[in-house]
């Protein structure tokens, strides 16, 4: 499995297809987040924006490998493992991006609530931001896995479904991503730091199920 993850990571990094989502994320953060803003608000923004980026990364990882090359790897390790490995690489990439962003945003923001008076401790706020980013990275990977090969094979429909699913999982009540972002925003209004463990667990469960489904279908719905 390690060799497989390494291969897919190298494929992602060297293909440079990670650059557009990365740049889009950076541009969004540059516009929406400024130094000196309340820390929990900024962390909420950065976590929310990570979800579509993670979904895009997952799509890049799944579609980046040419069919014939995928066949060679699938013969060696089984198509299910190959599929799950490339989604795990996407998840790791999104989680790493979320971690770096959370740390940067924490450093740049003011340790205050939305009213700019109540103090918010930076350490716990950073922790809550990391958990929220991880939940959004997980859910984004699930969205990407469920809206690309082998579940949806026509690129036009897949991209539309990806955008719609990413939007829904950010705004629909009951979605773990909506819950963590809402938690950070409410926490900023009240001046308390949330601990979004429950939504994180839910996001992990949803993602595990999505990856398992994608892996199980990899050998049934191809090419």
């Amino acid at each position: 499995m390690t060799a497989l993850l390494r291969y897919h990571a190298a494929l992602l990094l060297r293909s440079q297809r990670w650059l557009p989502p990365f740049l889009l994320y950076a541009a969004f953060l540059a516009i929406s987040i400024q130094a000196g803003q309340p820390v929990l608000d900024s962390l909420g923004y950065s976590a929310a924006a990570l979800l579509p980026v993670a979904a895009w990364l997952a799509r890049i990882c799944v579609t980046g490998e040419p069919d014939a090359a995928r066949g060679c790897v699938a013969a060696a390790v089984g198509p299910g493992r190959a599929q799950v490995a490339c989604l795990l690489v996407a998840l790791a990439g999104a989680a790493a991006l979320g971690t770096v962003t959370t740390l940067l945003v924490t450093l740049l923001s003011d340790p205050v609530a939305s009213d700019h008076r109540t103090r918010v401790p930076l350490g716990p706020a950073c922790g809550a931001g990391l958990l929220a980013a991880l939940a959004c990275a997980l859910l984004g990977t699930a969205v990407g896995a469920l809206t690309s090969r082998p579940l949806l094979r026509s690129p036009g429909r897949a991209v539309l479904a990806l955008l719609l699913a990413a939007l829904l999982s950010l705004v629909a009540t009951g979605s773990p991503a909506q819950a963590v972002v809402q938690g950070l925003v409410t926490g900023s209004q009240k001046g308390t730091v949330p601990l979004p463990l429950l939504p994180l667990a839910a996001a992990a469960l949803v993602t595990a199920a999505a990856l398992a489904l994608s892996g199980a279908l990899a050998s049934r719905r191809s090419p």
Binding site: R14, S15, E65, P66, A68, A69, G71, C72, A75, A76
Partner: peptide, 11 residues
């Protein structure tokens, strides 16, 4: 497995 056409589009 050796496929019939192998793509050179790998980085």
């Amino acid at each position: 497995y050796v496929p019939e056409r192998f793509p050179p589009a790998l980085p």
